[in-house]
């Protein structure tokens, strides 16, 4: 295959991933590495390098809007970024010693977990009382709702921090944003409102991915010719997706996306078990 043809095909796939990711709110990053490795036979290291760069582009692009609208909790984000960046740095070094087949199996499990989470709704359980640590860290805030500014409090900071370490490790190891784990940590563990959890997760993804992308750049995993269509394709797809009104079709798209993720998980599991990746 020539570089030109490969660029066009990868660009199309990345565009579809970005579009579907934006329409469903699940992020397209998680399907990029399976797409590159399974469909195009790309080495896992190049795939992870290209995917991380694309993840930074889409999360930073959409975070810009959410931050301005006042949903994002910057203090919660900053505090938990200590955990995600430390985890990402650890994950980047772990990736050099964990065998590819094991990474493929971890990837499959994370894909299945993502599919399961996407079918569950928000776990919104707002709390009126902050725990002492959250109060000392001044994590409580407010966010815009149709009925005006709604204030909220935060709980279980250590558990959230621990889950964010895991999110960081997975982000670096698999070249994903780990949005599902991040939202789980804030929404379920720390009792943040769902909209605040998703936008703050998105805000943190770029910083998390940058921590391991730096290591991978220096290790020679980031190939400009491959990252070119991946980054621009996902970014274009996400931009178009954000401008489309989906309304009632979101459910159908979610099911479609979940189906794709399950198929990719099965394929990754098979490749991991047979050592074919």
């Amino acid at each position: 295959m020539t570089v030109l043809l490969m660029t066009a095909l990868v660009g199309l796939g990345a565009f579809a991933a970005g579009l579907l990711g934006a329409l469903t709110g699940l992020g397209g990053g998680i399907v990029i590495v399976p797409l590159l490795t399974l469909a195009f036979g790309v080495d896992l290291r190049y795939a992870v390098g290209a995917s991380l760069v694309a993840v930074i582009a889409t999360s930073s692009g959409s975070a810009a809007a959410y931050v301005k609208e006042g949903y994002t909790n910057i203090r919660v984000g900053m505090l938990l970024e200590v955990a995600t960046t430390a985890g990402a740095l650890a994950g980047a070094y772990l990736s050099a010693v964990i065998p590819t087949s094991a990474i493929a199996i971890i990837f499959a499990l994370v894909l299945l977990f993502t599919a399961a989470q996407s079918l569950r709704g928000a776990g919104e359980q707002l709390t009126a009382a902050a725990d002492p640590l959250a109060r000392r860290l001044r994590l409580g805030s407010s966010y815009p709702t149709p009925g005006g500014e709604q204030s909220y409090q935060v709980r279980n900071v250590p558990l959230g921090f621990l889950l964010m370490l895991v999110a960081g490790i997975l982000s670096a190891l698999l070249g994903i944003g780990s949005g599902v784990v991040k939202v789980l940590a804030m929404d379920r563990a720390m009792h943040l409102p769902f909209k605040v959890s998703t936008t703050t997760s998105n805000f943190m993804i770029g910083v998390t991915a940058a921590a391991s992308a730096g290591v991978y750049l220096r290790r020679g995993y980031v190939d400009p010719t491959l990252a070119l269509p991946v980054m621009l394709g996902v970014l274009a797809g996400a931009l178009v997706g954000a401008r489309m009104l989906t309304g009632a079709r979101t459910r159908v798209l979610r099911l479609l996306f979940t189906g794709v993720v399950v198929v990719l998980a099965a394929e990754m599991l098979y490749k991991g078990a047979t050592g074919g990746l």
Partner: peptide, 27 residues
């Protein structure tokens, strides 16, 4: 840069099956 890259190297063979690592100039 991508437009220039495709004009210059578009006809080359794309091969990412084997990991070689990027040259020092891109690291």
């Amino acid at each position: 840069g991508g437009a220039a890259l495709l004009i210059q190297h578009g006809a080359a063979r794309a091969d990412y099956h084997l990991f070689r690592g990027e040259p020092a100039a891109l690291r």
